[in-house]
Design a protein around this nucleic acid. Structure first.
Lengths: 147, 147
DNA sequence: CTATATGTAACATCATTAGTTACATGAAAC
DNA sequence: GTTTCATGTAACTAATGATGTTACATATAG
């Protein structure tokens, strides 16, 4: 099962955009992410629809992020991406008549619902600013090691 | 993305087996699960390799579960199935050079690791006996409603 | 020997993200 | 106003992994 890496992608892209003055093109982001500009446009389009970024065409166009890094949480980004399924494991049959299967489903659903609630809570606690700060720490550490 | 429903399947199968005297054939289980006997064999083979069930060929053959329902946890079954990936969301690149991506990965990995720990903890707390008890409650409730 | 069961290989199916090609559209620069 | 550079988007392919199916080998009870 292929894993959905769009959240990872947009985080990476947004942090690179934050490092830059002015707009960043899909081509530049694609290079950062090691992918294709069309994939970038497709993925970033979710964020544009959610009002998190804007895009401009033509000369000096590209993607822009206006808001404060501290004001955007992973949860908002997850929602902007359409709240894709978190889990790769699920019930065999979502609405079974069989009472045995109903009992099985209920147990798994409860468990996964609890885990999803935890994930969403953590997502709502982490902002882009937190990731940027972690990046800055890593950057400083590398520079220390080099000198 | 198609979800892995093997855990759900084996739970369903094991509880049906517990309801029965003697071995249960793959055909019978396939009927319960609404699938194909080959799929049943393939999936149950994991449990056989883990020593949770046995299978016999030929006349009066089929699948058997010997142990106590209270002695088998969802976690054991998950492990028997090869500990398949729990999450449908993941990092774009598992070993990036880019420090930005490393920071992104670290945040997501921590969060998902915490959720996975919670899931495994819950899985280790739930036994087949718990599911059987829940089934019995549902069964009794239906009988009450019918009468 | 026959009927019945599992064991297993081989291949098709399905769903979904990701990757690619191609082209339309819009905006700034000259 | 033409050129250049950017996004927007459709259409198709690739990759992945569970699931479904067919076919046949193998073992076992009677």
């Amino acid at each position: 099962m292929k894993r959905d890496s769009r959240l990872s992608s947009v985080l990476h892209a947004l942090l690179h955009m934050a490092e830059q003055e002015g707009p960043v093109t899909s081509d530049a982001l694609a290079q950062c992410l090691g992918t294709n500009p069309v994939v970038v446009r497709r993925t970033m389009a979710y964020l544009r629809e959610a009002g998190i970024v804007t895009s401009d065409r033509g000369h000096a166009g590209g993607w822009r992020f206006h808001a404060d890094l501290g004001s955007v949480t992973l949860r908002q980004l997850h929602e902007a991406l359409g709240e894709p399924a978190m889990f790769a494991i699920g019930n065999r049959n979502e609405a079974p008549e069989c009472l045995v299967e109903q009992a099985v489903n209920a147990a798994l659903e409860d468990t996964f619902a609890e885990a999803e609630a935890l994930l969403l809570k953590r997502f709502s606690e982490i902002t882009l600013a937190d990731l940027a700060a972690d990046f800055a720490r890593r950057h400083a550490a590398v520079r220390r090691k080099r000198s």
